[in-house]
Design a binder for these strands. Structure first.
Length: 562
RNA sequence: UGGGGCGUCGUCAAGCGGUAAGACACAGGACUUUGGUUCCUGCAUUCGGAGGUUCGAAUCCUCCCGCCCCAGCCA
């Protein structure tokens, strides 16, 4: 560790914990949990919660459990469990032996329910779903009590055990908490806590036909695990009185405390599970790990680093305000991290052939280039230079605008890490008039040195030697949506960005990239940060653009041309 | 509409009665063999609004306005 003091994060939740620690509320213990339902892949919004829960545990020498909240068999699967485990690990967190499943508590939860019945706090209701809804009342009218509300304890016990035994059809009966049908908080109007669902569960298989509802299972799972702070998102605020109601009746001693914070919203993307599933299922993207997806697996494939994501989560803070975080902050965090760790390399994405007329025909020079301009520890590599090169089409213009520091008729430019070259001529396609080849002359004195007369050469462009490069496919990614808050639109797919993926198939990468391993990140100088995609084979290199470099010229140029 | 929450810079976010941190974004400039990095500089006389309390209010009180969440046998 360096001695630079790490600033401990601070937010209203940590303030509460600090106060509790001062008053010894939870016997100086801090126990949190990250409780995803295994019915989808986790995304950057979950990452915020992961960083919060594991971050707090780490900061206070506490623990954070990973708990799969799998109380609704519909849509849950081991595939999702495995993806969650992989993703949370990759983000850099460790839960030791504390991997739990709500489904492991089914037997205990059943006993708790029985206890609730015995104390007159729960009853079996035989109303169907429509009737329950209808009798719940509205925001302004109280609900009506179920005709089954005053069944005897004995009958309730009998009915509930028969529910478990599978004697009834789905939806025929429910177990309801007996609270208050007139409560202004609708959550408290005798909420259903168990339902019959003849659905095989991915872990308990067909053992159960009744499953506990979230409100019943979650708080008790927290209690069983000795959680002190049950941190969740704002939409559960209305559920907190129910959380406390259940725990107060069934748990003695120290009880978990629910605290709610605002979920993350990110501009130009969607983060709701429902919408993410739609993007995958309707093939708007190529899967959960499509590099355009805000899923952890998508960001990993894209080339984002766990450090960048963690830092992003630290930057956005934790509060109760609804928010829409600008993606540019995420991009900033990714660049900040990659700037330090990504070796520099040269690749040409849209090649233009360049012949250096006065360079000896069969000469090849081996140059040794630094892998990082500010960090010599990252070493050097060999790069070949020869008479025929490729440069970027963007780096030549026949009628360049003012302030254009690149090649054009009569202009000179430095080839990065190599020589200063001067324009000599063009070769055009006879039919289209398009420039298909450029001719220049080089000044042999300018290798690692300014021109003899000392004048300043403004432009520097990147290149690869035509004989010493490797072809590559490069995928250019852009934001998935064209509006900043697609999540607020009902028909959000209308706003998909048609240019979110551009695949370039005629790129050339410098030879040192020939055996690049999938997942490794590079800076293609002057272009951006790129990552070797897992589609890469021995025959075909494939790169993803993680994020472009900041481009102050692009801004200036755009303004002057529009 | 009943209940629960939230309103501080374009976007986040500190602030907890003593005179508006920081980050991103944006705008200038320096440096530069990446139009990158780095480095300077600027960027809320005012905290949703109106009253009030106070020597002093973003912070306390009152009223008003706006936004979000809740009427799944989802989580």
């Amino acid at each position: 560790m360096t001695q630079s003091a790490t600033i401990l994060p601070s937010d209203f939740i940590r303030d509460i914990i600090d106060d509790d620690l001062r008053t010894n509320k939870h016997k100086a213990c801090v126990a949190t949990r990250f409780p995803p339902e295994p019915n989808g892949y986790i995304h950057i919004g979950h990452a915020k919660s992961v960083c919060l829960n594991f971050g707090i545990a780490g900061q206070y020498q506490g623990t954070c459990n990973l708990r799969l909240d799998d109380t609704d068999p519909l849509g849950e699967s081991m595939e999702y469990v495995e993806s969650i485990i992989r993703d949370v690990r990759w983000l850099g967190f460790d839960w030791g032996e504390r991997l739990f499943y709500a489904s492991d508590y089914f037997e205990k939860l059943y006993s708790f329910a029985v206890e609730l019945i015995k104390t007159g706090n729960a009853y079996v209701c035989s109303l169907n779903a429509d009737d329950v809804r209808e009798q719940r009342g509205t925001f302004t009218e109280p609900g009506r009590e179920s005709p089954y509300r005053n069944r005897s304890v004995a009958e309730n016990l009998d009915m509930f055990s028969r529910m478990r035994a599978g004697e009834f059809a789905d939806g025929a009966h429910t177990l309801r908490a007996k609270i208050d049908m007139a409560s202004p908080n609708i959550v408290l109007r005798d909420p259903v806590i168990y339902r019959i669902k003849r659905e095989p569960h991915y872990r308990t298989e067909t053992k159960w036909v009744i499953y506990p509802m979230y409100d019943f299972a979650h708080c008790l799972s927290d209690a069983l695990e000795g959680i002190t702070y049950s941190i969740c998102t704002l939409e559960f605020e209305n559920n907190r009185p129910l959380y406390d109601w259940i725990v107060e009746r069934l748990i003695t001693g120290s009880r978990p405390q629910q605290i709610e914070f605002a979920r993350l919203n990110l501009s130009y993307t969607v983060l709701s599970k429902r919408r993410l599933i739609e993007l995958v299922k309707k093939n708007y993207v190529q899967g959960w790990d499509d590099p355009r997806m805000p899923t952890v697996t998508g960001m990993r494939r894209r080339g984002y680093t766990p450090e960048a994501i963690r830092n992003f989560c630290a930057q956005i803070g934790v509060a109760k305000n609804d928010n829409l975080i600008d993606v540019s902050l995420l991009e900033h965090c990714v660049r900040e991290d990659l700037n330090n760790r990504a070796p520099r390399v040269m690749s040409v994405l849209r090649p233009l052939r360049l012949v250096i007329d006065n360079y000896p025909e069969n000469q090849v020079e081996e140059f040794e280039f630094a892998n990082h301009p500010q960090n010599p520890d990252m070493g050097t590599r060999q790069v070949s230079f020869s008479k025929v090169l490729y440069i970027e089409q963007d780096d030549f213009q026949e009628n360049p605008p003012k302030k254009y520091h690149r090649l054009g008729p009569g202009r000179e430019v430095r080839l990065r890490n190599a020589y200063v070259i001067k324009f000599a001529g063009t070769v055009k396609d006879e039919k289209t008039g398009e420039v298909i080849e450029l001719h220049c002359t080089y000044d042999p004195q300018t290798r690692n040195a300014p021109p003899a007369d000392g004048h300043k050469v403004q432009g520097v462009i990147h290149w690869v030697s035509a004989e010493h490069c490797v072809p590559a496919v490069v995928r250019l990614y852009d934001r998935l949506f064209s509006i900043d808050n697609p999540g607020s639109e009902e028909d959000f797919t209308k706003y998909l960005n048609p240019h979110s993926l551009e695949t370039l198939t005629t790129c050339y990468a410098e030879l040192s990239l020939k055996n690049a391993k999938p997942g490794s990140q590079y800076q293609f100088e002057r272009l951006g940060y790129f990552c070797t995609d897992l589609d890469t084979t021995a025959k075909q290199l494939v790169f993803n653009r993680i994020v472009a470099l900041r481009d102050s010229w692009g801004k200036v140029n755009k303004e002057s041309t529009t």
